[in-house]
């Protein structure tokens, strides 16, 4: 993979994840304010989970190039971005799994008040993990751009 393609995919990965996080706000706010689950709440939850899973997959795909070309530079300079980047990866796994679980819980148990509350807790946890992931990602991205 060329540095240009890596940088392009890295940006697509980040922007899609940001879009997914923004969309995830809709079912969270909707579940906090409404008693039922309208179809558009389920639709945005599904789409948000998809929009978080897709950049996660893209991130996994470019991860090998990151380790091969970027991580060495960070390791050599003892950059604090190195452990922070791995924290980002760990929390991204959390966010992806929680978002998928939240939308599945909403779909399978959305008629039950407990199911809706659990789905809200899962989606809110996914959003929190995703936001921390995004903030670390922006910081690490600013550092790693120069490390290739």
């Amino acid at each position: 993979m060329t540095p240009t393609l890596f940088a392009l995919l890295e940006r697509v990965h980040g922007h899609l994840a940001l879009l997914g996080l923004a969309l995830l706000m809709h079912p969270i706010v909707s579940l906090m304010r409404r008693k039922g689950v309208p179809w558009w709440t389920q639709a945005t939850a599904d789409l948000a989970a998809l929009l978080l899973a897709a950049p996660f997959g893209l991130g996994w795909w470019i991860y090998s190039d990151y380790r091969a070309h970027v991580k060495g530079g960070l390791y050599a300079t003892k950059s604090p971005a190195l452990p922070a980047f791995e924290t980002k990866e760990h929390l991204a796994v959390f966010a992806m799994a929680l978002a998928i679980a939240g939308t599945l819980t909403l779909r399978l148990a959305g008629k039950d008040p407990g199911g809706r509350r659990t789905a809200l807790a899962l989606l809110l946890s996914a959003w929190c993990c995703g936001v921390v992931t995004g903030v670390i990602g922006m910081w690490v991205s600013a550092v790693t751009t120069h490390a290739w």
Partner: peptide, 24 residues
Amino acid sequence: VLAAGPWIVAGVIIPFAVSMVMVP
């Protein structure tokens, strides 16, 4: 289980998420 879901989610996810901070 679903009735206690939010507490279970918070009780499980928060400690494990914190344990991952700055783990390479």
